[in-house]
Amino acid sequence: NRLGIIYEIQGMKAVVLTSEGEFLIIRRRKDMKVGQQVSFENEDIYNV
């Protein structure tokens, strides 16, 4: 599992900021809110 803070939500995608200072786009889940810490898997990351 990886951890990140939700920075922005766009439709079915969420932008998270990881503890390494990396911004990633992941698959959104219904319970996500901006500012929330979430765990996610590598499979949830969109390749940009």
Rank of each mutant, 00 (worst) to 15 (best):
N1P: 12
N1T: 14
N1F: 15
N1L: 14
N1G: 10
N1K: 10
N1Y: 15
N1Q: 11
N1R: 10
N1W: 12
R2T: 05
R2G: 07
R2I: 08
R2E: 03
R2P: 03
R2A: 04
L3V: 12
L3A: 10
L3H: 09
L3I: 13
L3K: 10
L3M: 12
L3N: 12
L3E: 09
L3T: 11
L3W: 13
L3F: 13
G4L: 02
G4W: 03
G4M: 02
G4I: 02
G4K: 00
G4T: 01
G4C: 04
G4Y: 04
G4H: 02
G4R: 01
I5P: 00
I5T: 07
I5M: 10
I5G: 01
I5H: 06
I5Y: 07
I5K: 08
I5W: 12
I6Q: 00
I6Y: 00
I6C: 06
I6S: 00
I6N: 00
I6T: 01
I6G: 00
I6E: 00
I6P: 00
I6V: 14
Y7A: 08
Y7E: 05
Y7L: 14
Y7Q: 11
Y7R: 12
Y7V: 10
Y7K: 10
Y7M: 11
Y7H: 06
Y7P: 00
E8A: 14
E8Q: 13
E8C: 10
E8G: 13
E8S: 14
E8T: 13
E8V: 13
E8D: 09
E8I: 10
E8Y: 14
I9A: 02
I9P: 00
I9K: 01
I9F: 15
I9S: 01
I9N: 01
I9L: 07
I9G: 00
I9V: 09
I9D: 00
Q10T: 06
Q10V: 11
Q10A: 07
Q10R: 14
Q10G: 07
Q10Y: 13
Q10M: 14
Q10I: 13
Q10F: 15
Q10W: 15
G11P: 09
G11E: 12
G11M: 06
G11T: 05
G11A: 10
G11S: 09
G11N: 10
G11F: 09
G11L: 09
M12S: 14
M12L: 04
M12P: 14
M12H: 15
M12G: 11
M12T: 11
M12R: 13
M12W: 15
M12A: 09
M12F: 14
M12V: 09
M12Q: 13
M12K: 11
M12I: 07
K13I: 07
K13G: 04
K13T: 08
K13A: 04
K13Y: 13
K13L: 05
K13E: 05
K13F: 13
K13V: 07
K13M: 06
K13W: 14
K13R: 09
A14S: 04
A14R: 00
A14V: 07
A14N: 01
A14P: 00
A14F: 09
A14T: 05
A14K: 00
A14L: 06
A14H: 01
A14G: 01
V15W: 15
V15Q: 05
V15H: 06
V15M: 15
V15C: 13
V15P: 00
V15G: 05
V15L: 12
V15D: 01
V15R: 13
V15F: 13
V15T: 12
V16K: 00
V16P: 00
V16E: 00
V16Q: 00
V16G: 00
L17F: 13
L17H: 06
L17E: 05
L17W: 15
L17I: 07
L17N: 02
L17C: 05
L17K: 06
L17M: 13
L17Y: 13
T18R: 01
T18C: 05
T18F: 03
T18Q: 01
T18P: 01
T18D: 03
T18G: 03
T18V: 06
T18A: 04
T18M: 03
S19Q: 15
S19H: 09
S19T: 12
S19P: 08
S19A: 10
S19R: 14
S19G: 05
S19M: 14
S19V: 05
S19N: 12
S19C: 13
E20W: 05
E20D: 09
E20L: 08
E20M: 08
E20Q: 10
E20S: 13
E20A: 14
E20Y: 07
E20R: 09
E20G: 08
G21Y: 05
G21R: 04
G21M: 05
G21A: 03
G21W: 04
G21D: 03
E22W: 13
E22S: 11
E22Y: 14
E22C: 15
E22K: 11
E22P: 02
E22Q: 14
E22L: 13
E22G: 09
E22D: 06
E22F: 13
E22A: 14
F23W: 15
F23P: 02
F23G: 01
F23M: 13
F23E: 03
F23L: 10
F23K: 08
F23H: 07
F23T: 09
F23V: 14
F23Y: 07
F23Q: 05
F23C: 10
L24W: 09
L24M: 09
L24F: 12
L24I: 08
L24H: 03
L24T: 06
L24D: 00
I25Y: 11
I25T: 11
I25K: 07
I25S: 09
I25G: 03
I25P: 03
I25E: 03
I25M: 13
I25F: 12
I25W: 11
I26R: 01
I26P: 00
I26Q: 01
I26A: 01
I26C: 03
I26D: 00
I26S: 00
I26N: 00
I26H: 01
R27V: 06
R27L: 14
R27Q: 04
R27M: 12
R27D: 02
R27Y: 12
R27W: 14
R27S: 04
R27N: 08
R27T: 06
R27E: 03
R27G: 03
R27I: 11
R27A: 05
R28E: 01
R28K: 12
R28L: 15
R28Q: 05
R28M: 14
R28G: 11
R28I: 11
R28P: 03
R28W: 15
R29S: 06
R29K: 13
R29F: 07
R29G: 07
R29H: 10
R29T: 11
R29E: 07
R29D: 07
R29Q: 05
R29I: 06
R29N: 10
R29A: 08
R29P: 04
K30Q: 14
K30P: 13
K30W: 14
K30I: 13
K30A: 15
K30H: 15
D31H: 15
D31C: 15
D31F: 15
D31P: 10
D31V: 06
D31G: 15
D31Y: 15
M32E: 03
M32P: 00
M32L: 05
M32R: 01
M32S: 03
M32T: 05
M32D: 06
M32I: 04
K33Q: 09
K33W: 07
K33S: 07
K33T: 08
K33C: 08
K33A: 07
K33D: 06
K33E: 10
K33V: 09
K33G: 04
K33Y: 12
K33I: 08
K33L: 07
K33F: 06
V34I: 10
V34M: 10
V34C: 15
V34L: 13
V34G: 02
G35D: 03
G35K: 03
G35M: 06
G35Y: 07
G35V: 00
G35A: 05
G35N: 05
G35F: 06
Q36H: 11
Q36G: 03
Q36P: 00
Q36K: 09
Q36A: 09
Q36E: 07
Q36T: 08
Q36Y: 10
Q36I: 07
Q37L: 08
Q37W: 12
Q37T: 12
Q37C: 09
Q37P: 07
Q37A: 10
Q37H: 10
Q37D: 05
V38H: 04
V38T: 05
V38K: 01
V38E: 01
V38A: 05
V38D: 00
V38P: 00
V38I: 06
S39C: 13
S39E: 13
S39V: 12
S39Q: 09
S39D: 08
S39M: 08
S39F: 09
S39T: 12
S39I: 07
F40C: 02
F40A: 02
F40S: 02
F40I: 06
F40N: 01
F40W: 11
F40L: 09
F40Q: 01
E41H: 10
E41C: 14
E41S: 14
E41K: 14
E41W: 06
E41Q: 11
E41P: 07
E41F: 10
E41L: 12
N42I: 12
N42M: 12
N42V: 12
N42A: 09
N42H: 11
N42F: 12
N42T: 10
N42G: 06
N42Y: 10
N42L: 11
E43D: 12
E43Y: 03
E43R: 04
E43T: 04
E43C: 12
E43F: 02
E43A: 06
E43Q: 04
D44I: 04
D44H: 03
D44T: 02
D44Y: 06
D44F: 06
D44N: 02
D44R: 02
D44Q: 03
D44E: 07
I45V: 07
I45R: 02
I45K: 02
I45Y: 04
I45L: 07
I45S: 04
I45C: 08
I45D: 05
I45F: 03
I45H: 03
Y46K: 09
Y46H: 08
Y46E: 07
Y46G: 09
Y46W: 08
Y46T: 10
Y46S: 07
Y46R: 07
N47Y: 08
N47D: 11
N47W: 08
N47P: 08
N47M: 08
N47T: 11
N47S: 09
N47F: 08
N47G: 11
N47R: 04
N47E: 14
V48E: 12
V48G: 10
V48R: 05
V48C: 15
V48I: 11
V48W: 05
V48A: 09
V48F: 06
